[in-house]
Design a protein around this nucleic acid. Structure first.
Length: 887
RNA sequence: GGGUGCUUAGCUCAGUUGGGAGAGCGCUUGCUUUACACGCAAGUGGUCAGCGGUUCAAGUCCGUUAGCACCCACCA
């Protein structure tokens, strides 16, 4: 059998994914006697291509899903894709633009059908990429937010909330993107600090006596001013209130009004009021019954309500013209620079315009109360816990949610207007006749719903709600939601509200929030910066397992991941290490025929030790997976496999494996060794499978040809359960003693740069008789791992002349090396060591001499210090003697 | 303007009820040792941001200062 020297994932990943898929392992088998484990995928955008953020998010999900599946729980990872309203429409509109067409030219129906066509052709890319990553989603349940099933849920929810008075239509100032020509929710607006300007304008008194100076950052909106406001407490302007001002560049006059909102400290203390173009002014306007004059159209172009000379000008062109005219008329008093946070469209980065329009809203306050409670009483827990505060802050200050969007791709609002009398009806289907005028023609509301209006129903819409399906009954509430903190408001909080309202239960028990993937300079990885490697390239070169392991291994809890090539190497090297351990085991398993029964094994120290460690590690890994401390799970397994299994156990096993007599058949010891190598390796593959599914399956299947196991795949094999009986501290301590001694010998060899191949003899002065048998029995460990040809270990042994020496616990190790030793150098080394030990000794002595320590500290802590004192004193004494011997 | 988090080895970061400072990468030295140079072995490296407090004991708890990051917010 040929096994290549380096691990090559390219073929085997596809092979095993297909195998799992054929076997149907991804689809859970509900068992009413067991609690299921369910994870909802944060649905990627249909336009999405896998990026490093997806890799992190979905790897974490797959790890916990695979762990729970191996624990025998009916496990469902429910996948889906989001229709991503604006983003998707933009993609297709861009394609249209290359043909010099706009959506308005081809019309709504045509555009929507083009988008569906695009979706059919390109929309499953991200799904295929998730499969490459190894995600074990139940693809038979794959959802799309625009599916018939989910669309029905959306309509049902809309109608129900409307009937309950929780959805209303109103004229409000909203965030408007003039490029996308749509309203945006607050969360879809990104603020960026910019150095802007503050212009001071003079508005003349109608009576011709002087003027009032106001400050503005958006001069173009002055054309829609309907008042100037001052603070009623402001002594400077008391007399102004009620006076009329001439609004420059227009033929209008506007009143001076008094409103508490005005900050007397800012600007001049006088504020221009533009109710149709500013949210605060809208509020002021409401209080004072001011006229709302909309001077821009939906593209940010000045409209017919602006004076003629400005009509048709873009908002910024208009601004320039106004500044120029005001300057010419001596009405521009001064210009200051001014830092302000300007809102930008999260999709196209265009500057947002606060804009007065008809929109649909959800009243959130009534929905938020139960959602606050359920987090307060621990029904839903955030991990790390600190995000709870963020959630609470938002929920306690929640505002109504603008859910209408003026685009075409999405769920169309189920509101219908009678063509005859204009009566509005909200219903699942278009009404057949108007209840008021009996007319039969209706037109549907043109707007579609915010994309989040479908994803906030995710926990139950994906399971078939409003039907009472088996899935709903069994899998809801789900177990763990894994997502990024950025969407706590947009998605997580809203799912909690909707699920409580419509199902009367929590959507999930735990929310695990992970960080962002950043580059070496700490910048968020993004397409526009070009700093994000393509995960598919990585998967194709080093494999999904290496990528997954690297991500998990270097993921601090809840903090950001700094992605570098070095991180990726950790995973790649580890995969290669495992591969080669396997290669070694398989080559020997071929040579050594037969496999003993478990009862026939002749276990020695190293064997008992590796089983002891294996069981400890199984317990630790299990706890880490369960507590979502996945980086700890990765760390523990990495250390066990690399340091303990490969560096110590496998190295020790060689002595027994190579001691095979060709004619007389394998020795008992070799058979025992073969058994344990196979057994520990297959267990390790189970432990690691959640993180590295492909390589573990490949190797586990290979091992199975020599070591029969009941399951047919590691993916559905039982996760190892720690056997407490096999965890043996005495064995662990003996092995540690041997390891420390071997390291000491290696260290001494290094002092004089002995070539690795040179064999030497080592003398050990033991302190206790019971150490004798240990060193006699396991002399071979020294032979193999420290190239020791002769080990002489006795109590009271005489120090050989001209030897290097070291202290391990209470024994002394000597390397007789006459002629090779530089006495001064050796003395210097030992003296340095002694200084270190003496420092340690002094600190322990100080502690124990302190009465308050002895009386206040826990007894076991005091006891540990006493033992330490004894150990360190011995070492100090022995080292002192060794130095004295050199003279 | 509010809020949250971070500051530990050269770099990126762990450190779970307070009790002998850790990992990966890097660096130094020596190795083609029949699983692996994507490797082996032995090492170097840290007043745990500063200051103050609680405690027998503080990287860990409290206060404070400084620097950094992110989130939220309508200051014209």
């Amino acid at each position: 059998m040929e096994i290549s020297k380096t691990y090559d994932p390219s073929q085997l990943e596809k092979k095993w994914y297909a195998y799992w898929s054929e076997k149907g392992y991804f689809t859970p088998k509900p068992d009413q006697t067991r609690k299921p484990f369910t994870v909802l995928i944060p649905p990627p955008n249909v336009t999405g291509a896998l990026h490093m953020g997806h890799v992190l998010n979905n790897t974490l999900q797959d790890v916990i899903v695979r762990y729970h599946r191996m624990c025998g729980e009916p496990t469902l990872w429910l996948p889906g894709v989001d229709h991503a309203g604006i983003a998707t429409q933009n993609v297709v509109e861009k394609q249209l633009a290359t043909q010099d067409k706009t959506r308005h030219e081809i019309g709504r129906e045509e555009l929507v059908s083009l988008i569906w066509k695009w979706k059919a052709e390109k929309g499953d890319r991200i799904i295929e990429q998730l499969k490459q990553l190894g995600c074990s989603c139940d693809w038979s349940r794959l959802c799309f937010t625009m599916d018939e099933k989910l669309t029905r849920a959306v309509k049902e929810v809309f109608v129900s909330l409307y009937n309950d008075g929780l959805i209303y239509k109103g004229k409000y100032i909203i965030n408007w993107c003039p490029r996308c020509v749509t309203a945006l929710a607050n969360d879809e607006v990104e603020h960026a600090d910019e150095q802007g300007k503050l212009w001071y304008f003079r508005y003349p008194h109608q009576d011709g006596k002087g003027f009032v100076t106001i400050a503005t950052t958006r001069p173009e909106t002055m054309l829609g001013d309907t008042a100037v406001a001052v603070n009623p407490k402001d002594e400077r302007y008391k007399d102004l209130i009620g006076k009329q001002l001439i609004l420059p560049l227009t033929d209008r006059t506007i009143p001076v009004i008094a409103d508490d909102y005005v900050d007397t400290q800012f600007g001049t203390g006088c504020v221009k009021v533009t109710p149709a173009h500013d949210p605060n002014d809208f509020e002021i306007g409401g209080r004072h019954n001011l006229q709302q004059i909309l001077v821009m159209d939906e593209h940010g172009v000045m409209n017919e309500n602006a004076p003629e000379q400005f009509r048709g000008l873009d908002r910024y062109a208009c601004r320039e013209k106004i500044l120029q005219l005001m300057q010419e008329q001596g009405l521009l008093e001064k210009t200051d620079s001014h830092a302000l946070a300007v809102g930008h469209c999260y999709r196209c980065d265009t500057v947002i315009e606060p804009y007065l329009s008809d929109q649909w809203f959800v009243r959130m306050k009534p929905l938020s109360e139960a959602a606050i409670q359920v987090v307060e009483n621990g029904g839903v827990r955030f991990q790390p816990e600190r995000w709870t505060k963020v959630y609470m802050h938002w929920m306690n200050n929640i505002r109504d949610w603008c859910i209408s969007r003026q685009i075409w791709w999405g769920h169309r609002i189920p509101a219908y207007y009678c063509e005859a009398c204009g009566k509005m009806l909200v219903a699942m289907e278009m009404p057949s006749s108007c209840p008021d005028c009996k007319h039969t023609a209706f037109r549907q509301d043109e707007d579609v719903l915010d994309t989040w209006f479908s994803s906030w129903l995710w926990p139950f819409s994906t399971m078939g709600w409003p039907e009472e399906t088996d899935d709903l009954k069994y899998f809801l509430p789900t177990s763990t939601l894994i997502t990024a903190p950025e969407i706590i408001y947009l998605w997580v909080a809203r799912m909690i509200m909707s699920t409580l309202h419509f199902k009367g239960m929590i959507p999930f028990e735990t929310v695990l929030l992970h960080g962002t993937v950043r580059d070496e300079q700490g910048r968020k990885m993004s397409k526009s910066l070009g700093n994000s490697p393509d995960p598919i390239d990585i998967i194709e070169t080093v494999g999904a397992d290496a990528l997954r392991f690297s991500m998990v291994f270097s993921t601090p809890k809840g903090a950001d991941v700094i992605y570098t090539d070095a991180i990726l190497e950790t995973g790649r090297n580890f995969a290669n290490k495992i591969w080669n351990a396997y290669r070694f085991i398989m080559l020997n398993a071929e040579t050594i025929k037969g496999l003993p029964a478990k009862e026939e094994l002749q276990l020695e120290l190293a064997d008992k030790w590796i089983y002891s460690r294996l069981n400890e590690v199984a317990a630790e890994a299990s706890a880490h997976y369960l507590n979502l401390r996945l980086n700890d799970a990765a760390q523990v397994l990495f250390k066990f496999i690399w340091d303990e299994f490969c560096s110590w156990y496998i190295e020790l096993s060689k002595d027994r494996l190579y001691n095979v007599e060709p004619d007389s058949g394998p020795a008992k010891a070799a058979l025992t060794d073969k058994y344990i190598l196979l057994d520990v390796m297959q267990s390790a593959m189970r432990l690691l499978h959640p993180i590295m599914p492909y390589i573990t399956e490949e190797l586990w299947q290979g091992i199975r040809t020599h070591f029969p196991m009941p399951e047919e795949s590691v993916m559905i094999a039982e996760f190892p359960i720690a056997d407490a009986k096999l965890i043996d501290q005495a064995i662990a301590d003996e092995m540690a003693f041997m390891q420390e001694s071997i390291v000491a010998v290696r260290n001494l060899r290094k002092q004089v740069n002995l070539p690795p191949a040179t064999e030497i003899s080592v003398h050990v002065r033991l302190a206790e008789a019971r150490q004798q048998s240990l060193f006699n029995r396991y002399e071979s460990y020294f032979r193999k791992l420290a190239k020791v040809s002769e080990l002489k270990a006795e109590v009271g042994l005489t120090k050989p002349p001209a030897s290097l020496s070291a202290v391990v616990r209470n024994i002394e190790i000597f390397l007789p090396l006459s002629g090779l030793i530089d006495l001064n150098q050796e003395k210097e080394r030992l003296t340095k060591q002694l200084a270190k030990l003496e420092g340690e000794l002094a600190s322990v002595q100080r502690k124990l001499a302190n009465d308050s320590f002895v009386s206040n500290a826990k007894p076991e802590v005091v006891e540990r210090e006493r033992q330490r004192l004894a150990e360190v004193s011995t070492k100090v004494e022995l080292t002192r003697n060794q130095i004295a011997d050199l003279d």
